[in-house]
Each structure stands twice: as C-alpha cells, then as structure tokens.
Design a binder for these strands. Structure first.
Lengths: 196, 196, 196, 196
DNA sequence: AATGAATGAGCTTTCATTCAT
DNA sequence: AATGAATGAAAGCTCATTCAT
C-alpha cells in the first residue's frame, strides 16, 4: 500500500506540472517555451521535470490528453445542466468561452503541432469526433422536441458548429472583440433557427 | 527608373525565396524551419537569403504580406467572375479551397505567431476585415436580388462565414476528409438559405 | 547566507574562467578569441561559459574589473611595503613589470575596446585617476622628505609617470628589449631627481 | 608610356582607398570594420577593393606603411622648420597632436595587431627607432647649444619622450582632457630642463 | 526524489572573398 | 577596370537533456 502514496504524489506533481506547462505553452508557444521556464514557474528544477516526463514532446502530449479530458468533462456537465441549453445560443457561447478560457492559443499550438505529429493528430481527430457526437445528440433532442426541422443534416451541422466556434476563437486571437464574435455566432445560429 | 534589370532580378529572386519559404514554413512551421533548409530547397546558399531579407522574422513577415495580397487578388477575381457565385455554396467552397491550396497550415502558423507579434496581428486583423467587407457586399447583393431575407445581421453573418471556413480548414488539417467538411459547409449554408 | 557551497563554487569557477580568458584575450585579442577557445583551454564546454557570463562582452568587462582590482591591490601593497620605494626608480620599474606580467597586451586590448565601449572607458578612466592619486601621494611624501623640490606640478608629474610607463609597455610589446626600456625610464626619472 | 598613366591611376586610387580605410579602421577598429563599409565610404564596390589589395590584412599593412611614411615626413618637416623647436615644449606637443590628429586609435590598433603579426611588429619597431634617432639628434643639438647638460643619457631620454607621448595619447583616448595631458607633458619636460 | 551544473548539437547571422558579366 | 550577387566558413549564443551528488 506504500506505492499508492507515492503514486498519488506522482500524479499530483504531474498535474501541477501539466497546469504550469499549459500556461507556458499557451503564452509562449511550444517551441519558444523553455523547460526552464516551466520549472521556474513551479519552483522546481529543470531536472525534476524529466522525472515525470520523458521529454518536452512527451509533456506536450500529456497536456493535450489532459486538455481533452478536461474539456470533455466540462462539456458533458454543460449539456447535462439544462437540457435545453442548446436552445439558448448566447448561453452556449458564453459557456464555451468560459470553459476554454486561457487555452485558446493552446488549441492552435496543438493544431500546428499536429501537422507534424501523427499521434497528436489522431488524438485531436478523435476528440473532435467525440464533441461532434455530443452535439449531434443535442441537436437530435431539439429536433425531437420540435425546435428544429426534421430534414436537417445533423452531422454536418454539428461539424459546422464546432468549426464555427474554432474560427471565432481565431478571430478573438486576432483582436476582434468578443461582442463582435458573439454577434457572428448569434447571427448564424438565429438565422438557422428562425428559418424554422 | 535606371536599375531596372537589377531591380527586376531582385524582385524575381525575392519571389522565388518567398515561395520556397511558404512551402517550408507550411510544412515544418516557423520555428522548426531552418534558414538552411529554405536555401537548399532553392539551391542557394544561406547567406544569399540574407541579401534579400534581414532576418528569418523579416522573411516570415514578407510571406504574410505576400500571402495576403495573393488571397485578396484571387478572392476579388472570384467574386467578379460570376456575380451569383455566392448563391452556389458548393462552388464557393471549392473555389476557396483551390485558392488556399498549400497554405492551410501557413494560416495557422501565422495565427500562432501573431499571438506574439503585434505587427503581424494587425496585418491579419486588417486582412480579415477586408475579407468580411467583401462578403458583406456579396450578401447584400443577394439580399437585393431577393435570395435572402432583408432582416439579416449581414456583418455578423459575413464574420461567421469566415470563421466557419477557417474552422473547417482546421478540420481538414486534423484529417477530416473533404467530403465531410464540404458537407458541414453546405449543411450550414443551405439551412440558412432554405430558411427563406 | 545559505548557498555558501554553491556560491563558493560559482565564484571559483568564475575566477578560473576569468584567468583563462585573460590569457586568451591577451594572446589573441578580443575579436579573434573564440568563446570555444576559452572553453577548451579550461576543458569546459562553450555552454558552461554562458552559465557564468551573459555574453562575450560581459566576460570581457568582468576581466577588466578583475584586472583593475588586482592591480589596485598589488600597487597598494607595493607602496606600503617600503615607504621610500619611489625613491628607488629601478625597484619601482621592476615591481610594476612584475605586477603586470602577462597583461601588457590586455591593457591595450582594453584601450582599443574602450574606444567603442563607454562603460569600459569610464572604468579605465576612473582606474587611471586612482593610480594617479596614489602616485601624487607618494610624490608628496618625497617632497616633504626633501627628496624633491617643492615647486613641482605634482599632479602633472604623476600623470606623466603613468603615461611614461604605458608608453614603455608599448615599446616592450614592439620588441624593444627590457634593458633599453628600463634605461629610458631611469633616464627620465634620474634627470628629474638629479635636477635637484 | 601608357602603363605610366595606368600606374598613376592605380596609385591614386590606392591612396584614396588607404585614406578611407584609415578613417574606418580608426573609427571602428580592424576587426569590426567591414570591407563593405570602406567601399561604401568611397562609393566603390567591395570587389574593387580587391583589385588593389589582396586582402583586408594586406590593406591594413599598406595603411601602416603609409601612416609611417606620412608621420616621418611631417616630423622631419617639423624638426627642420625651426631648429629650436624642441626647446619649446608646448609647441612640440601641439605640433605632434596636430600631425597625428585622427590616427590616435589607429596607432593602438596597429600595436594590438602587431602582437600577432611579426611583419607589422618589425615595421613599427623600425619606425620607432627612426623617430628616436631623430629626437636624439635634436637633443644633441640642444646639448651642444648649452640648453641641456652634457651628461644625459640621450638615447634613453629620446625613448622616454616617445613613450611619454604615446602614453598621453592613451590618456586622451580614455577621456582625459587635453589641457591635463599637455600639463603632464610640460610638467615632465620643464622639470627636466629647469633641472639645469 | 530532487537538484542544477554541465553538455554539445544546432541555430541564426555575419562578412571576407570570389567571379561571371 | 569595375561590379555586386553569391558563397560558405565561422562565430556567438541557446536549450533540451543528462547525471553525479
């Protein structure tokens, strides 16, 4: 039963490192973040990082996994809270922004990195698929309840919603202010729904 | 008006370098691309690059400008070709993909880089604004012709189209196949239009 | 007061690097000395130098400070040893040569470098002033004791002695043999004193 | 008779290059002066320099020779103008400063370079010898005329004068103001002479 | 488990020199 | 004779990674 403590400790430290690394990678980008910066932000030594992660690459992959898990959890929570949440386009947008706060750049760092890293690409692909599935479910619920027409390409729409959200995140990063981004989101969704 | 030959030569070489650099930066990313790689892909020496661009950063900025100019030109061409092009959602998508072929990753490299480079961010912001304006015009034309309702948030929609396209580019990069991406695009647009 | 060991180690290594760098810069000059050469002469890696000094420039400045401190200490010692030492012109010359052994070229490297480096120039200026002050004191002692006339321009003379010594160091560097240089020194000083 | 013109042209251009190079090397130092800077200051192309001098090193050596010749000529002129000039310590100092104006740093650049370049060292050694000889002659004249004692170590004194002047040039480079430097010069010389 | 000194491959950038025109 | 585009060997500096303590 002793290793448990150790193991628990290990997991805790790993998590602390991951959170610090998310911060650093988000701020500075993968290539420009130095292992030393991460270590210093944790009051740890550089060497210690290598006790928990084999390499910088490995740490980045761990971050990606962690980030994916986190966002799945919070998204699930969101969808469970109010069943009708998708009907409230503005609330969805605000919720998503809150959930992803601070990791906007990270997502694009991951995207860029994924172009050279098949394992990462696969992970992100799977993650996106899961999110789409969740949205498909939500849309179907709305269709069943009569909020939306029955002849929609639900999968296509789900995919498009994800893409729209990502694209607006890019807008945000470029300096477009949030009211404008939200307006775009609402313009699209309301046009869709009001089409009914 | 005198150094015509030299000037012409210089411009030509610069353009060759830019094209090779687009290729390299797209493939490998800004930080991981070595100046030597770009040089070798052109059968030039490293030193020569520095005759034409002050630094790696400078070269990257030149690429961004070039890329922006190019895409403005081709986009203008597209909108002028057929006035009703926006009405044909599929043609638009195919056209955009053709125009941007090979620079998908570059766009995200630029985005990531822009997070640390205010000058680049400003350039990308302005570029996005211009594109939105062009789309606003197109949408207004469609409204005038009665293809779309009059009470739309045109600016919001234009913004959303751009975001949607960018987000689908991300999907493409992650390995989602083009039929699926186009389906998402069409699902969104057709829902919009058919809402009429 | 805690990192005594570390601090001691760091100081030691710094000093070793400085001594090796004095050797290298003296032999080869600032610009032609490669950081790698200094490292190799210490059986260290290039990278290690940068753990202790921010840049080549920084290392050079550290050398200058170190050299100034050293020469102030040894000069003070010399003046304290025998109060009448200035009266023995030959002993002074020999002492100075011994003190400065191995750093003759360094002084001129510093001088040349100081032409572009205001901070270094200021440091060398201050150092020279201090030396002049020390000599002024010594001359005044001799005047009080009646070895020299009372109507001398003591500051001017002190300045001239320093200049004379530096100029003879230049002679030495050009290959003039030491007996000849010492002869010049003695010719000047004995003429001064015998003028009494 | 044709080559004469060419040769004359060559000599002229060489001289122009040398003068520009003296300026640049004085300002920036040997290592930090780029061939391109010299070329640009002459409105010439880099390649042209290599038509007249084999290498940067070669150009530097030519400068040294030229500088030596020049200073011999002007010094000879000075000594011939007024036979009693050495008697006027202040006039000598002012004259020397005027003659050497702009080449103070160059002298030390040469000195530093000479430490690694035997040919240059030999040239500077010979030059210094010549100057000393000239001064010896002047002192002897003064001795003959009864301005100075007969039992002086004339060669030693001559050597010391040169060294003193060089050392004061160093002072000047370090920022000591000229009145102070001249005062040092006069303090030394007047003490010598008044000792009579 | 933790450290942090040490490493060295690797990168950007510079510049003396060459050579086709 | 003159050019200036091109070269490529260096050099300064960085930083992921290792390892003795």
């Amino acid at each position: 039963m002793c290793p448990k403590v150790t193991s628990m400790h290990k997991t805790e430290v790993k998590e602390r490192i991951i959170n610090a690394a998310i911060e650093s990678f988000s701020q500075t980008g993968f290539d420009r973040t130095k292992m030393d910066d991460i270590a210093k932000s944790l009051d740890l030594s550089k060497g210690t990082l290598y006790l928990y992660f084999e390499s910088k690459e490995d740490l980045f992959m761990a971050i990606c996994e962690y980030h994916h898990k986190q966002s799945m959890v919070t998204m699930a929570t969101m969808f469970n809270e109010k069943e009708s949440i998708l009907a409230d386009a503005e609330a969805i947008y605000d919720n998503l922004r809150r959930i992803m706060r601070g990791t906007e750049k990270l997502m694009f760092e991951m995207l860029v990195e994924s172009a050279r890293n098949p394992r990462l690409r696969k992970a992100m692909y799977d993650h996106r698929l899961k999110i789409c599935s969740a949205i498909v479910e939500q849309i179907n619920m709305l269709v069943e309840k009569g909020f939306l027409r029955k002849d929609l390409d639900v999968e296509g729409l789900a995919s498009a919603f994800v893409a729209l959200y990502d694209g607006l995140t890019a807008s945000k990063m470029l300096g477009f202010d949030e009211p404008a981004n939200k307006k775009a989101w609402l313009a699209m969704i309301r046009t869709l729904v009001s089409g009914d």
